[in-house]
Design a protein around this nucleic acid. Structure first.
Lengths: 185, 185
DNA sequence: TCAGAACGGAACCGATCAGTACCGTTTGGA
DNA sequence: TCCAAACGGTACTGATCGGTTCCGTTCTGA
């Protein structure tokens, strides 16, 4: 059984949106590169906006699963998130964070795409908080907020400099924060 | 004498590009909101792309002048850059960093707009390095890179959270870095 | 005063945008 | 075997995209 049309649309759209931006990629491009017919597209999605949301929702789940896996591979400590980021930054197709990009590109903060992006960041922050709590940090919420700020800063910097160096720069700062943090017990 | 057409184009385009994104704003919008005729626009700029570059170049100069002024108003120390950011984040029309936004929106890293954005960040980094050197930090280059990463992280976070809190979060981290930094003499 | 630059407005270009409607074919389950 | 759902392809809509051309007016400096 060949891959269903809906799945092909989601995969093609995700690649194109991430590489060139949501606004820069027209429905026509997605159809021709996925081989899906125009009518089939509108049978699966009411419109382009709904495709964007579906793509982001799928990416949110997969990205966080990937992060958890890579963090485990790097020892499971809180600082491992920056090792995971360094891996991402080295990828040839790295184009920043799809959710930050969506927030930047979609000016309207009430749009559905914006909500998904905000939800993704909240989930990542919660995940980092768990890593810090497991590490015995006394105030994991405060430090998690600073870690996520460092992560976003590293992502934006890496996009600009086109080198994974920013991940290690952020990691050094995070390491200092972690060393200075108070512990429970 | 009324404001010249070129100046009106630049001001209108800067406002619209920043508020809604370069790609989201068509030439038509800029013309109608600025009151400039279509022909006049193409007399001043070869095309939309050139207008984008001119807008960014002007913003680069003005933004850095504004930063230096606000840093001075906040005591002139390296940490004052985060107080300046907090001011920006509180503005009703805050929509992140126009240069980060341009890099995100313009996928092509070889585009002129990308180059201007990269140049802006390099200039800001050099400015921060000067502040750190004046403060007696032993390795101002290293710390400047971390400060700029924190600034970009704060900007992106503030755009997402829609509150100036990220500026103070970044400031706290920077303060810890500054306190731990070695000094000359 | 007068020539020429600068200007605003409008008509027009081909290309592309998101979205709709209808076509004939392929496919999977009863 | 047969029916219906899912499908790919094509033609079309009105709107908008960036850009060109011409025309008549306004403004300015010599």
């Amino acid at each position: 059984m060949p891959v269903q049309a809906r799945e092909r649309l989601l995969r093609t759209a995700e690649d194109l949106f991430y590489a060139e931006g949501v606004r820069a990629v027209g429905v026509e491009r997605i159809l021709s590169e996925s081989g899906v017919g125009r009518a089939s597209f509108y049978r699966h999605f009411p419109g382009k906006e709904d495709l964007v949301v579906a793509v982001l929702e799928g990416r949110d789940v997969r990205w966080r699963a990937w992060l958890a896996q890579r963090v485990a591979a790097h020892g499971g400590g809180p600082l491992a998130v920056f090792d995971a980021l360094a891996e991402r930054f080295s990828a040839a197709d790295f184009r920043g964070c799809a959710f930050i990009n969506t927030i930047v590109e979609t000016a309207d903060p009430d749009s559905a795409a914006h909500q998904v992006a905000a939800g993704h960041k909240a989930a990542v922050c919660e995940y980092v908080r768990g890593l810090l709590a497991a590490d015995g940090v006394a105030e994991p919420d405060v430090l998690a907020g600073r870690f996520v700020l460092l992560m976003d800063g590293a992502i934006v910097t890496a996009l600009r400099e086109r080198t994974p160096d920013a991940a290690y720069r952020a990691r050094d700062v995070a390491e200092a924060l972690l060393a200075a943090a108070e512990r429970v017990g």
